[in-house]
Amino acid sequence: MNGFRIPVGDWVTSIVDFITLHLGGFFDVISTVFGGLYDAVDFALSTPPFWVILLIIVAISVFAKGWRFGIAVAVGLGLIAGLNQWGNAMDTLALTLVAAFVAVVISIPIGIWAARSDTVSAVLKPILDFLQTMPVFVYLIPAIILFGIGAVPGIVASIAFAMAPGVRFTELGIRGVDKEVIEAGHAFGSSPGRILLQIQLPLARPTIMAGINQVIMLSLSMVVIASMVGADGLGKDIIQALSRIDVGLGAEAGLSVVILAIILDRLTASLGGSRPSLRRLFFPNRAPKNSIVDESIEHAPRSSEATPAVPSAA
């Protein structure tokens, strides 16, 4: 075995060089799109006074989980502002939201595809295992080469690291839908697309939302890694605290990350439950129309039709 070496690193280097040479324009477009999304979200979160964003997040929290959670969110966000970490927290939140949004947009359709095809599922499993087990720092090397320094390579690395749970949970949720319910949809003449939208996805929503929750948490866990390649946010202060051995700054930035993580975790977890929608909030007595369940009720035999009237003895 002396002198024997499999040149995997050389192969990867050649592939990256080829991509950089021939697909540079494509990655420039991706960099522009991701950078524009990040700048827009960061502008929306950072430009208004902090109390405006605080009230908006508190209002969403109250609607999602009630007043107690809303009060806790207000206290947590107020603490972030009191620690003078509000700007950094909004930068981190913007990066997390953009990375999680793109990861969800990619992972859910792939998960649906995998749920409908055993071949696709078998091909995806080793790829997802690779994405989940690869050390996160390794993602930064090609990201920096392809996208340079800034928020974009951090977003790309976060997407690659965080999208696997979205695919797995989406596939698991759709495959877990009762087959008898799907057969009932076929019996009423529903198309495969309608069965997917009105039966499989609604019934799989708790599992899919659990996957989205994991995507967001993994995206947030990349804030420090993203700051190492030039992204703004709480990770930059954590890196500075590490380099200066500043325990106080590290504690403040770390506590702000924890508060954001708890808020995002509870909000996304609540979306998978049975909280009322806006329509039911304002129209509690109005049932949704055009659902397969409504059609089954409409086509079901009425009691007067199913059971003939029995003449009275009188």
Results as ranks from 00 to 15, higher is better:
50 F>E: 00
213 N>Q: 02
7 P>L: 10
44 A>N: 14
86 W>Y: 14
125 K>L: 08
286 R>W: 05
148 G>L: 06
20 T>N: 12
264 L>N: 08
147 F>K: 00
72 A>L: 15
113 W>F: 13
39 D>G: 01
29 V>M: 11
50 F>Y: 01
204 A>D: 05
227 S>V: 07
199 I>T: 14
283 F>L: 12
117 S>G: 10
170 T>V: 01
84 N>A: 04
62 V>F: 13
124 L>K: 00
311 P>N: 14
101 F>S: 15
278 L>I: 03
31 S>F: 00
96 T>L: 13
301 P>V: 14
138 V>S: 06
53 I>G: 00
81 A>E: 05
65 K>S: 02
140 L>E: 09
170 T>M: 00
158 S>Y: 07
276 P>Y: 08
242 L>A: 11
229 V>W: 04
29 V>A: 11
260 L>V: 06
163 M>R: 02
134 M>Y: 14
21 L>R: 13
190 S>A: 15
304 S>K: 10
249 L>C: 03
58 V>C: 09
222 M>Q: 13
11 W>I: 10
24 G>L: 02
43 F>E: 05
122 A>Y: 14
132 Q>N: 15
241 A>H: 00
241 A>C: 04
73 V>S: 12
209 M>F: 08
40 A>C: 08
33 V>H: 04
112 I>M: 07
84 N>P: 02
54 L>M: 10
306 A>C: 13
62 V>Y: 13
246 D>Y: 04
98 V>R: 03
58 V>Y: 05
100 A>Y: 00
286 R>F: 03
270 S>L: 01
53 I>N: 04
149 I>D: 01
179 K>S: 13
199 I>Q: 12
218 L>N: 00
272 G>C: 04
63 F>L: 09
282 F>D: 02
14 S>E: 06
59 A>M: 09
177 V>N: 01
63 F>N: 00
223 V>W: 04
217 M>D: 06
118 D>Q: 02
151 A>N: 01
230 G>D: 01
105 V>H: 11
194 R>T: 10
314 A>G: 13
224 V>H: 05
169 F>L: 04
83 L>A: 11
259 I>H: 00
84 N>S: 12
158 S>F: 06
116 R>S: 01
147 F>N: 02
277 S>H: 08
313 A>T: 15
158 S>R: 09
79 L>V: 12
148 G>C: 12
41 V>I: 15
5 R>K: 14
170 T>A: 03
250 G>K: 01
290 N>K: 12
201 L>S: 03
251 A>Y: 07
183 E>K: 15
38 Y>F: 10
270 S>T: 06
49 P>K: 12
74 A>N: 08
157 A>W: 02
208 I>Y: 01
263 I>H: 03
213 N>W: 04
295 E>S: 14
161 F>E: 01
296 S>D: 11
197 L>Q: 09
164 A>M: 13
284 P>N: 05
111 G>A: 09
160 A>K: 08
233 G>T: 13
38 Y>T: 07
240 Q>C: 03
132 Q>W: 09
28 D>Q: 11
271 L>I: 01
313 A>W: 15
262 I>P: 02
257 V>Y: 03
76 G>S: 12
25 G>M: 06
159 I>P: 10
213 N>E: 03
261 A>I: 06
66 G>P: 01
41 V>Y: 06
203 L>P: 08
144 I>W: 05
9 G>K: 07
93 L>Q: 13
260 L>N: 06
215 V>M: 09
117 S>P: 01
